[in-house]
Nucleic acid binder design. Structure first.
Length: 881
RNA sequence: GGACGCUUAGCUCAGCUGGUUAGAGCGUCGCAUUUACACUGCGAAGGCCGAAGGUUCGAAUCCUUCAGCGUCCACCA
């Protein structure tokens, strides 16, 4: 045998990875001969699948990714050695907004340009180039950790196959009434010019002045005086005795910021009488709570701030000013007017910011696409809502969550879930698969004319006064009136009167009247769809505030009807008018929409592929607990509806990696541990072990370089103990006619090849092997229970302190050449027994350690084996589950 | 405001359904040494198991209360 180096050389890891990869055994199709016999391999043909949570293509991987890759690789390698048909499907996530904002800010820094300067096409080209570069880096990192995933099936959330899946999913959900379009209050980021989901919000505390203002006979408090211009509702708790003389609906004239306003008293239980004066005015357009109140009482909505954060004409002389700059000026004016009562400087306010690198969130009412989580679907014959569907999967035990305490958190999250806003006004991502006949511009232009209030009694046709924005109308103009969600025609009319108003010299949006106005049968149908439980009569008040007011022209007829088509591919002919001029909705989908499909879109869905049949549902979803809601819940939702199935049987949630002082790792703190740097110095095995020991599900894990160094030492210990065993067993000849060791069917390394006389184990050595056997079984049990932390710790201790410190040390005299005191035959027997013992113990432990430390173990194995350790049989008797 | 979790050796944590002297790794201290391995070996010191009460023959473990820490969710004009 060649002289082996004194220290384990981790620089050979890349070569070993190539050896594994080129063997083809990462793919489930290839399996070693020993697995083919169903007699000895009860797991023959039985799949084991993990979908790799796709890392975002936003740069490089961090140690958190290393944890997930190590955990999954352990499970995969363990099951592969147990004879299962293992598939670990890798991929990357386009991460829409995260990637876009990263590229956007880099372009801005370097060239001073925004995405609008570059244009959609050029900008996307840049993002894609960045994504590709990130992807390549990430794949290299995944490999350097030793991940044994099947690269032939690699997927990307934005590639062609996944695009088909996304569009198909969208269409099916739309047709089932789960997806709707409507105006709702959304989290608007004026900086990135897009909506942000509730889960992407990051709250920050801020000390701001709190102003008490005089509003007629009341005193109201606000931290945001700049939103108050249009306030005309004053709200209080119905049981508040202080205000019992005011009645709900009562109107009074008050002096307000831009002159007199007619205020309406509203009694609502959501008001906290203990807070401030117990009275508040509301701004439904820019506050969710206010929006809810306004909706409950059918109040009007008015936009105060535009989408860039500038004040609208309603603000009078402050129009077009940015809210941040206008606030002090507004406070000045209030003071002059005598409306400012007092200022509380010590007020802690929580402001919402976009965690994806954006700005301060300004709630706005906007037209968006939503998934209705309270909509019912048919699931295995019964009608349940999407919320119930998500709960049921976990409640019934079909999906297990480890650790179990996260079940409660999961249920709680679902209970508080609101409709999921899935559209984003960004460019990088899956464009919404909806096409408009006549083009987007034609049909979305009329948004300018949309009405900003609820229209009560629309069905009765009584109300015919509409306030418009930014649009000039003339008497005699014809108009059509459409529900903006599904573009159903609601009514037609001719404008009979236009009212122009000015406040403080500023022209307000037009009010129009129409005496000649008719509702349509489609309106009744639309209303029924929106309110299936209500009986509709001629006088039913409709709460339809999602509509567009479209000036009618001949163009609308010739170039397109505005009809919407939801489809997997661009339509060629409009089913309504025969038009051929289509344009796709410019918005893109929330990134979680495509990742929600991940477990099955990667297996070929919507095509009914063999992979889908074989590998779905997947076995384990291993991910961070911080992502339980974003992702896990949505996968359960999507799979439940689209496949009537669960996406995975077990969810294993790992903790966050923190630094040695338990601090979250972040670039700004400079405490980020770069996995590649660590691997270069200490080797991937050392990092993997350091990430496993002490890593209990759902608990955070402190990681220090010292810890990694400790396991690098362990890798070296393995190397040297192996070197010793190999050197001292070179002359050991396996006997020709093997005998099975008595009573040893579950032995750690069956069958032990033993024959009478030479090569038989001495009783004391047999005992040690029996121990080893028990040890191997306990490791197997721990791995089956997903107890990786303890399995890793046990392996470490056993190898070092039992095998190296005791067994090897005690074997040394038996192996020695000069056994002068004893008879040569007896000495020979001892020596052979010791050799067999060491060889067996070493090989068994290499197999047990392989999932955790694949590189060192394989490197040692390769010294005197032709086959790969990776596909050796797992020690102990294989069981069928 | 609501929920969950944690509190055990200097540090990071194990201790399953209550059962003999409470464990590991790292660290500390002492000793050893041309040994497969100094990326080593042997050994030692270190804990009224957060506090108080209760259940029990018996509690780190079960129950109650409290304190401190942490996390998540909701959210106030």
């Amino acid at each position: 045998m060649k002289e082996l180096p004194k220290h384990y050389d981790q620089s050979k890891e890349a070569k070993l990875y190539k050896l594994w990869e080129s063997s083809g055994y990462f793919a489930p199709e290839a399996h070693p001969p020993w697995t083919d016999n169903p007699q000895t391999n009860p797991n023959h043909g039985k799949p084991f699948t993990i979908s790799m949570p796709p890392p975002n293509v936003t740069g490089t991987l961090h140690v958190g990714h290393a944890v997930m890759l190590a955990l999954q690789d352990i499970m995969i390698r363990f099951e592969r050695m147990r004879g299962r048909k293992t598939l670990w499907l890798p991929g990357t996530d386009h991460a829409a907004i995260a990637t876009q904002s990263k590229v956007e800010s880099e372009i801005y820094k370097r060239e001073g340009k925004t995405r609008f300067d570059l244009g959609r096409e050029e900008f996307l080209r840049r993002v894609e180039a960045f994504a590709q570069a990130s992807h390549d880096t990430i794949v290299g990192q995944i490999k350097s950790l030793g991940s044994s995933c099947d690269w032939s099936r690699e997927a990307f959330t934005l590639d062609q196959a996944r695009t088909l899946a996304v569009r198909t999913a969208f269409k099916q959900m739309y047709e089932a009434g789960l997806i709707y379009r409507g105006k709702r209050i959304v989290n608007w980021d004026p900086k990135l010019q897009t909506t942000v989901s509730d889960d992407e919000i990051e709250w920050k505390e801020e000390q701001v002045p709190f102003y008490y203002l005089k509003y007629g006979p009341f005193e109201i408090g606000t931290a945001r005086p700049e939103t108050k211009f249009g306030d005309k509702y004053v709200v209080m708790h119905p049981k508040d005795k202080r205000y019992k003389n005011y009645k709900h609906g009562q109107q009074l004239e008050v002096d307000w910021m831009n002159g007199k306003v007619t205020a309406t008293v509203i009694k609502d239980e959501s008001v906290d009488p203990e807070f401030g004066t117990g009275v508040m005015t509301i701004t439904p357009w820019h506050d969710l709570a206010d929006f809810d109140i306004a909706q409950r009482h059918n109040l009007e909505f008015e936009q105060i701030i535009d989408f860039k954060g500038l004040l609208l004409p309603v603000a009078g002389e402050f129009a077009s000013q940015h809210i941040k700059k206008a606030r002090p000026l507004i406070v000045e004016k209030l003071k002059r007017q005598g409306l400012l009562v007092k200022i509380d400087e010590q007020y802690t306010h929580r402001i919402a910011t976009n965690s994806r690198g954006g700005g301060i969130i300004e709630p706005q009412i906007k037209e968006q696409w939503f998934v209705d989580v309270n909509e019912q679907i048919t699931d295995h014959g019964s009608r349940i809502t999407l919320k119930e569907l998500m709960k049921k999967a976990v409640q019934s035990g079909q999906v297990k969550i480890i650790p179990e305490r996260f079940k409660k958190v999961y249920f709680h999250w679902i209970d508080n879930l609101r409709d999921w806003c899935i559209s984003r006004q960004i460019w990088y991502g899956h464009q919404i698969p909806v096409w408009y006949c006549g083009g987007v511009e034609k049909t979305s232009q009329p948004r300018m004319g949309f009405h900003s209030s609820i229209v009560p009694e629309l069905l009765g046709g009584k109300r015919r006064t509409y306030r418009l924005r930014d649009h000039k109308f003339n008497v005699g103009d014809r108009f059509v009136f459409k529900n903006s969600g599904n573009r159903i025609l609601l009514g037609k009319g001719i404008i009979t009167n236009v009212i122009k108003t000015t406040v403080g010299g500023i022209e307000l949006p037009d009010m129009i009247h129409s005496d000649k106005y008719k509702t349509t049968p489609e309106l009744i149908a639309a209303f029924k769809r929106m309110h299936p439980d209500e009986k509709v009569t001629k006088t039913t008040p409709a709460i339809i505030y999602d509509y567009e007011f479209i000036p009618f022209s001949k163009q609308d007829q010739t170039e397109g009807c505005g009809q919407m088509t939801v489809s997997e591919t661009a339509p060629t002919k409009c089913p309504a008018c025969g038009g051929t001029n289509f344009e796709q909705d410019p918005d893109t989908l929330d990134t979680w929409f495509s990742s929600g499909l991940w477990t099955f879109s990667t297996l070929g869905w919507p095509k009914q592929t063999k992979d889908l049949k074989t590998f779905h549902p997947t076995d384990v979803m291993e991910t961070g607990y911080d992502i339980l809601f974003f992702w896990v819940a949505r996968m359960i939702l999507m799979t439940g509806f689209l496949l009537k199935d669960i996406p995975f049987k077990t969810v294993y949630l790992h903790g966050l990696v923190r630094d040695k002082d338990r601090q979250k790792m972040s670039k700004s703190k400079g405490n980020v541990i770069d996995p590649l740097g660590i691997i270069e110095v200490y080797g991937a095995d050392a990092l993997r072990m350091a990430l496993m020991v002490g890593n209990l599900p759902g608990n955070d894990l402190p990681l220090s370089e010292d810890k990694v160094r400790g396991y690098r030492n362990f890798a070296n210990k393995i190397w040297n103990a192996s070197r010793f065993v190999l050197q001292n067993t070179q002359d050991y000849n396996p006997p020709q006619s093997p005998l099975i060791l008595r009573g040893d069917k579950t032995a750690a390394t069956p069958p032990l090849k033993i024959r009478g006389g030479r090569g038989e184990l001495l009783p004391e050595d047999k005992k040690i092997l029996k121990d080893l056997d028990n040890f191997a079984q306990s490791i197997t049990k721990k791995l089956e229970k997903y107890d990786f932390a303890h399995a890793a710790e046990d392996l470490y201790r056993y190898f070092w302190h039992t095998f190296a410190d005791k067994v090897i040390e005690e074997a040394k005299p038996k192996l020695a050449d000069n056994l002068s005191a004893e008879a040569p035959a007896k000495a020979e027997k001892k020596r052979a027994s010791a050799q067999l013992l060491l060889k067996t113990m070493l090989e068994t432990q290499l197999k047990l350690l392989h999932p955790f430390m694949p590189f060192v173990t394989e490197a040692i194995w390769q010294i005197n084996h032709k086959d790969l350790l990776m596909i050796e049989k797992w020690p102990g008797k294989l069981t069928g589950d």
